[in-house]
């Protein structure tokens, strides 16, 4: 017996959902959705769950992650109930739900908190630089070290426990029995989706969205690899230097297109940008662009006298690594692929 909870509507509205109460369950959204199928029928079902506030049903559902927001449901909704935006908000709500620290929820719901966290990290970077007497080499060395440690800590302390929570919500708590061998066999699904996002191809809208997104993901991952493992800022290898340039140029150009899309609201999915969406694309752009400039300054020997540029890059990097990656939109990279994985292993063989 599920309990109706009208407060849930108020809660989910803080995550960006709006007007979904207007839904009268015609099912146009599900009919028009090219990804919805018999196994996972959305968004109508989730709209209904949200209206009724059936929290446990929603938290056990991986359907929000199976939607890639083409926006077709929102444009065809006769009640203008914005089902697409509700799905987006449910993803934010689920992200907060999975996060054991609770910081994710705070950042989604309260903009002042997010601003405070970003200002605090910026201040921390400046204070750190001050403590090192603004010495370029020390700071750059630290910056490189930070990247590696940040990745390890964020993954072990936050992301892996959160993934475990997701596992608990969608598999263990609803008492779905999955054999160990199924877990192993499903791995292929996990990595295919993590690195190709091939499910997006099922959406009816333009496939260029998938292509640009794919290039951004690969560009981001390779730039990360180039800076962290290949030490782009410290290397003398011409190949690596040029590789880094190429990667950063691709990344900031394409993220620029994404930012411009959100400003112009040219698609249904760009109509209702939340702070978390803005932060994600802008910081990705800033990170790639500032890294590009830092490397140019290094190559032109300007960096010694223009430490502010590196500090700016480092600030963006730190904010990205300690705020956006563990608590912000970055996590969709993991949750989406794990959702596909869980979806696969949930199905009886």
């Amino acid at each position: 017996m599920a309990k109706v909870n009208p407060e849930f509507a108020t809660e989910i509205k803080k995550y960006g959902a709006h007007d979904f109460n207007a839904c009268f369950n015609c099912g146009n959204c599900t009919a028009t959705c090219s990804l919805s199928d018999n196994n996972s029928s959305f968004p109508r079902k989730l709209v209904r769950y949200s209206v009724l506030g059936l929290e446990s049903e929603i938290e056990a559902s991986i359907d929000p992650w199976l939607c890639y927001y083409c926006g077709e449901c929102s444009t065809t909704c006769p009640r203008e109930a914005s089902p697409g935006e509700l799905m987006m908000s449910l993803r934010r709500w689920l992200t907060a739900k999975y996060d054991w620290t609770g910081l994710s929820g705070l950042m989604y719901k309260y903009l002042p908190f997010t601003i405070f966290a970003f200002l605090a990290t910026a201040l921390a970077v400046i204070l750190f630089a001050f403590s090192k007497s603004f010495e370029v080499d020390t700071i750059m060395h630290f910056g490189h070290q930070f990247e590696m440690w940040a990745i390890i800590i964020v993954f072990t302390a936050i992301l892996i426990p959160n993934l475990a929570r997701m596992w608990w919500f969608v598999i263990l708590k609803p008492k779905i029995k999955v054999k160990f061998l199924t877990y192993v066999k499903g791995m292929q699904e996990l990595f295919t989706h993590m690195f190709t996002q091939k499910r997006t191809l099922g959406c009816d809208d333009s496939q260029s969205r998938w292509l640009i997104h794919l290039i951004i993901v690969l560009g981001y991952l390779s730039l990360l690899f180039t800076t962290v493992v290949l030490d782009w800022f410290g290397t003398n290898s011409l190949f690596i230097i040029l590789l880094g340039y190429a990667e950063s140029i691709v990344l900031f150009t394409l993220t620029f297109i994404f930012v411009r899309g959100r400003i112009k609201k040219n698609k249904e999915l760009n109509k209702f940008s939340q702070p978390s969406d803005w932060l994600f694309v802008i910081w990705l752009f800033l990170m790639a662009f500032s890294a590009f400039l830092v490397r140019i300054f290094i190559d032109l020997d300007f960096i010694e006298t223009n430490l502010w540029l590196y500090l700016f890059h480092l600030t963006v990097l730190v904010q990205w690594a300690v705020l956006i990656v563990p608590f912000g939109k970055w996590t969709h990279f993991l949750y989406r692929s794990f959702a596909m994985y869980f979806e696969k292993i949930k199905q009886p063989a």
């Binding site: 017996m1 309990k3 209904r48």
Partner: peptide
Amino acid sequence: IKVKDYLTSKKELEIE
């Protein structure tokens, strides 16, 4: 109140 919701395939709901 206990009611079967016809819009969620007769899910049994409880309302206070």
